[in-house]
Amino acid sequence: MFIGVDGGGTSTRCVVAGESGEIAGRGRAGGANAISVPDPAANLRAALLGALAGVDPARVAGGVFGLAGVAGATEPAERAWRDAGLAGRPVVVSDVLVAFTGATVEPDGAVLVAGTGAIGARVRARRVVRRADGLGWLLGDEGSGVWLGRRCAAAALNAIDGRGAPTLLVARVAEAVLGAGSAGEDDGPALAGELVAAVYARVAEQGPAWLGTLAPVVDTAAREGDEVARGVVGEAARRLCRTARVVCGEGVPWSGAWARGGGGPLVLAGSLLTEPTELAHLVWAELGRWADLVPARDAAVGAAALALRAALGDDPRAAAAHRALIGQAVR
């Protein structure tokens, strides 16, 4: 049996699979990004134990964890592995690699992820050879859920104090953060103070990933035609597309050189790009002009496929099992 784990900023998924690619167990828990989650090992352990229910741990021959910040993620991954009663050590790779291998059996291509965080990567022979962004909520992750949440809250506050244009985001952010009926007509300064205090408190209590909960607020307002929200989402799309072009080495995005040159598929991953969001609409439309786009599925099966390929090597069964795993993926 082989284990695959995908630990993101807001959730962790785990699958246990046999050597022919059949999935024997699934588990899910909270986020496992060491940058934005206080105790990633606890959530990794919970996902592992959920997937291993009914499976003898002694049958596990190997595992791959796809996690952000590989260097800092190795210790919590190994601790969770031991706590789950598993022998040996798991292999820890980048979360972008398992997102890629969870969507395609091709060895080469690229991947763009926009969920809680955001990153782009070039993949060759199932190894990440180039990356852009993925710098965390404070220094980067441009176009991510956290980035959108920060911009959303800031736009609402700018509208309240007059530095920005009027926007639906004032009422929507107030409702999301403070509860229904929080946005009055004549309480601008008081409302701003309450919002600032509440946002900082939430981040202190739940970590920066909480800001991503505001991403649907700005995306919905953009779909409804709010110009301020449309500006925020449009800027997120431009930044994500720039990240994709950088990792693909594509200087003229509409030339089609990437696809004609056999660059491989460009996998779009993360909830912001795989769900029917306004951001996804903009990014797919732009990148689809020059690349063959493939939607990500379940990165945990990509991690399991890497574990299985590491054990079976060039055995043709590895490719067949990889295809079978992708076919069973759950978005």
Rank of each mutant, 00 (worst) to 15 (best):
A300E: 14
L138Q: 14
C152R: 06
P316V: 01
H281F: 04
G140H: 05
G7Y: 13
A29C: 06
R82S: 15
V37P: 04
W210N: 01
R163D: 05
V252Q: 13
L268Y: 01
P295N: 07
G234F: 07
A303E: 05
I326K: 04
A299L: 09
A311I: 02
P208Q: 14
R130N: 05
R289I: 06
L191T: 12
A229R: 06
V173D: 12
G249C: 13
G270K: 08
R79E: 15
G69Y: 05
A198I: 11
P40S: 10
L178C: 12
W254T: 15
E175Q: 15
G313C: 02
G207F: 03
G234E: 05
F65P: 12
V218Y: 03
V199E: 07
G149M: 08
V146N: 00
A32K: 02
R122E: 02
E22F: 04
E142D: 10
W81T: 12
G264R: 00
A324D: 02
P57S: 11
V15T: 13
D6K: 13
A215K: 02
Y200T: 12
A259R: 15
E205K: 09
G88C: 08
A259I: 07
A32Q: 01
P166R: 14
D95C: 04
G225F: 09
T167H: 10
P40C: 08
A125R: 15
P40K: 04
R131H: 13
R331M: 09
V228W: 08
P265H: 02
F2D: 03
S36W: 00
I326V: 15
L195E: 11
L135C: 10
R309F: 01
R59F: 00
A176V: 04
G21D: 05
G140R: 04
V113S: 02
A73V: 07
W81G: 05
A197I: 00
P276H: 11
A310L: 03
T12W: 10
G136M: 07
V228S: 11
P208C: 00
V301M: 08
L86G: 01
I119C: 13
G162W: 12
D187E: 15
R126A: 13
R230W: 00
A192C: 11
P295S: 14
G164S: 10
A103C: 11
A318H: 05
C241N: 04
V294F: 08
A291F: 07
G31A: 09
A307C: 08
A304R: 08
I3N: 03
L306Y: 03
G54F: 09
L312Y: 08
V96A: 15
F100H: 01
L112I: 10
A174R: 10
L191E: 05
G184V: 11
V129K: 07
A41P: 01
A237T: 09
A222S: 14
L282F: 06
V233I: 13
V37F: 06
A171K: 14
W254F: 09
V15P: 09
D56K: 04
A34N: 00
F65T: 12
L148Y: 01
A154S: 13
R79I: 06
F2Y: 15
A132R: 07
G181H: 11
V64P: 03
A68H: 10
G117K: 05
D298A: 13
L240W: 07
G234L: 07
V111F: 09
V91K: 03
A41H: 07
R289M: 14
V294W: 03
G179Q: 12
G102E: 06
A296C: 02
G63I: 11
G50F: 13
